[in-house]
């Protein structure tokens, strides 16, 4: 039900490596999980609105907005202090293509 192609595509999207010798096991794992959640299809949800936020409506927390006022921007050291690689004021990452 979950093809190897699907597994590989999902792995690529998630930027995870699945070594050759683990692929079948990973595919089976994914298939088992998908089969497990498939039981939801028994329910008729055609006219049901999805519930993305559990308390927003009920607590009136819609329109939580911020004023357009500058707050301190102090994180340069925080960023660069934690960055695996840096070059002066920049974070350095492996070369990208445009």
């Amino acid at each position: 039900m979950i093809s190897m192609e699907t597994l590989e595509r999902v792995g690529r999207l998630a930027e995870l490596e699945i070594p050759e010798n683990q692929r079948e096991a990973a595919r089976q794992d994914l298939e088992k999980m998908v089969t497990f959640v498939d039981v939801m299809k028994e329910l008729n949800v055609k006219n049901v609105e999805p519930l993305y936020q559990v308390t927003a409506e009920r607590a009136g927390t819609q329109n939580i907005l911020r004023d357009d006022v500058v707050t301190e921007g102090e994180a340069r050291e925080a960023l660069l202090g934690n960055a695996p690689k840096r070059r002066g004021e920049f974070a350095s990452v492996p070369k990208t293509f445009a």
């Binding site: 999207l13 998630a14 990973a26 794992d29 299809k41 999805p50």
Partner: peptide, 24 residues
């Protein structure tokens, strides 16, 4: 991997969106 699958094109409606409806 499961989460990426549930959000991916072709499966989003059947899985993630459905789960949100079941949630309601």
């Amino acid at each position: 991997l499961l989460g990426t699958f549930a959000l991916s094109e072709g499966y989003y409606d059947e899985y993630y969106l459905t789960a949100m409806k079941v949630r309601r």
